[in-house]
Design a protein around this nucleic acid. Structure first.
Lengths: 118, 118
DNA sequence: TCAATGATTCAAGGATTATTGAAATATGGA
DNA sequence: TCCATATTTCAATAATCCTTGAATCATTGA
């Protein structure tokens, strides 16, 4: 993730409906959610959700795939991880204050992280 | 960091000049930088840098303190850490793909992280 | 007190982004 | 083919954000 992409990703996450969408898709996992289901849960009109989904896809934070009549959206975990990484990058050189709180949350990933820290 | 704050923080980071400012301040550490120095490095007019610094301060990602005639800005490491945390929160419940890449970068914080992972 | 320095505020404008509803597209089944 | 469903696209409006330059405020030293 370079700075250009990060800018777009931050912009994508800076809007209430879109942040809501991303969090829903992260939770819903690889099955994702259809556009209509997202619109319903977010209580937004179809055309409006479409606008925001497009913006999120442009940012690379989500992906789409057609399944019959529905279009299924899924979170792009790599891109989200890349954004976290971008946020932490400059900091770690001398400023573990930023990484440390992340480590707390990352405790759930303990097995994978322990590998990395060997 | 709650969702409302995160929205503002993402918005703050979604603008080129502001993202540049934050990265400079993170690197410059606790000494921070004066508004004028920031404006010079970012090649932006004083009034424009002031506009963006205000926005960043509103987001809580940076803080200011007057020192003689200058106003010194510093990165708020807690807030930045809080944002990283927020980004990772929903993910870890079943989706360590997001946390894992973060762990790579966080290797610099290994001592602190190993404590947390005991 | 006066001038110089460092920075902010303000109003005007230009630019971008968000919302809305109507129309269009794509798919699957009767 | 025709209809219903699921979604997107488009154009118009509304709202927000960014930039600019002039004016203002705060601090320091002569």
């Amino acid at each position: 993730m370079d700075q250009r992409q990060a800018l777009i990703a931050f912009g994508a996450l800076s809007q209430e409906t879109r942040l809501h969408i991303v969090r829903m898709l992260v939770v819903s996992g690889p099955d994702g959610m259809a556009a209509g289901a997202i619109a319903e849960k977010a209580e937004v009109s179809p055309s409006n959700i479409s606008f925001h989904l497009k913006e999120l896809e442009r940012s690379g934070l989500i992906a789409q795939q057609r399944e019959s009549r529905s279009i299924i959206y899924t979170a792009n975990y790599e891109a989200l991880g890349g954004l976290v990484r971008f946020l932490m990058e400059d900091c770690c050189s001398g400023h573990p204050e930023i990484c440390a709180p992340a480590a707390e949350v990352a405790a759930c990933c303990a097995p994978k992280m322990k590998e990395k820290l060997q």
